[in-house]
Write a protein that binds this DNA or RNA. Sequence first.
DNA 1: CCGGAATGATGATTTGGGTTAGTGTCCCTT
DNA 2: AAGGGACACTAACCCAAATCATCATTCCGG
Lengths: 246, 246
Amino acid sequence: MMATMTDAGTEPLFRLLSRYMALDHADRVALSALETGPIRKLNARSDIAREGENPSVVRLLVSGWACRYKDLPDGRRQIVGFFLPGDFCDLNVYILSELDHSIGALTGVRFFEIEPEQFQEVIDQRPNLIRALLWHEMVASGIQRQWLLSIGQRSALERLAHLFVELYYRLQAVGLATGLTFELPITQNHLAEANGLSPVHLNRTLQEMRREGLIELSDRQLKIVDLKHLKKVAMFNSNYLHFNRT
Amino acid sequence: MMATMTDAGTEPLFRLLSRYMALDHADRVALSALETGPIRKLNARSDIAREGENPSVVRLLVSGWACRYKDLPDGRRQIVGFFLPGDFCDLNVYILSELDHSIGALTGVRFFEIEPEQFQEVIDQRPNLIRALLWHEMVASGIQRQWLLSIGQRSALERLAHLFVELYYRLQAVGLATGLTFELPITQNHLAEANGLSPVHLNRTLQEMRREGLIELSDRQLKIVDLKHLKKVAMFNSNYLHFNRT
DNA sequence: CCGGAATGATGATTTGGGTTAGTGTCCCTT
DNA sequence: AAGGGACACTAACCCAAATCATCATTCCGG
């Protein structure tokens, strides 16, 4: 019945893909059929996969936040992307053998693993889904380009503003924003690592955003106070998210 | 005969894909069959495609350098990737409608355009090629992650060192390096825009690299004087290029 | 063949953000 | 209940890189 469908771990993914193209009930059923194995859980600060590994399964994040990151031999670390509920951690397992980056849990996470054959089966049945999944990958790539622009050219304030707007749109797409408020369950340190800033300066920048009346942030709840102004500060253009349908 | 095959505009591409997986003569023929239309030429500093456009063809760069870039309303510009001979400018035309970035010629370029149907035909015949092309896209994405790490965490010197090593490997893969020397046909301004640095500081960093005996650069020829040292400075790990075969 | 961009190179000065070194407050864990 | 982490926050100081300004050369279009 509908209730079990809505509770399915694939629900956020279905919502997300629906932003790209029209999917029907059969697509939805096919997606939820991916969830055969048990839900796995990991604590914050643990790695889901390490650079150099060769994972054999595709992982779908059900709840919690994770990230892709790369680190340097001397310990410097850069978060190169966030995984939100409904995101796949490394669809590229199909093509590349070795991971060139690590995947870490930023909060407690729940996810399940999909065997390649199982994945293949679903994909063969539903050409629409391949297209939507490829789309999702392309958007991920577009987000990376946007981050490159941010870190290369935007100031600390602009960068953070941009990230918050991006997260707002992405979380809204999977039903995790209520009005202009959403849970931001990660630490200032994580935000710093994602933006190429020091934790100290990130904190200063957050204070500034609060002072300017752009956001409110406490108890892991981020409230966008003035979206229009925030987008202006960030020079935000949503085209790179390629949400064709609303 | 063989001579015409080697002269084909698809030759660099074939070389490149061969670094990922074994391709046979039939694959080579199929690739060169893509080149039906005329070779198009553009001058340096002209745009191949602009953000917001919806190109209907895939472009294969035959000679010269191009780049993906994104710009902000106030004129700041970030180069988010280089296209070298043998690279496709936007394979994602298949999936996404609107370009979320621009593509510009950094030097005079020669390329040809491939119609989707034509592309589809070749791909249908040669499953190996789809795989190799997807691989290439995944590597492009890995390069973006690496750039994010560079700009976010590496110092100006480290960044530039890393870029030079990367370019060396990529150019070598398409046969455009002779020993440790290759042509670097772009300006210091372009290098600055790719590295998120001001032109002035980029110039100073170049001077430093010369002083340290890492490189020699004049008349658009870059010679890596001490590759081992350069890789050490850059903390370079080639895994992200995923060259499985040498 | 001339004039004006592009390009590369440097000096002087400023600044955004890093570093270091704390503080206090919640948690956990045992 | 005590001890140790994580985490948010702040102050003082420092530095890598930006900015501003200038000049010499090369390149290129009319």
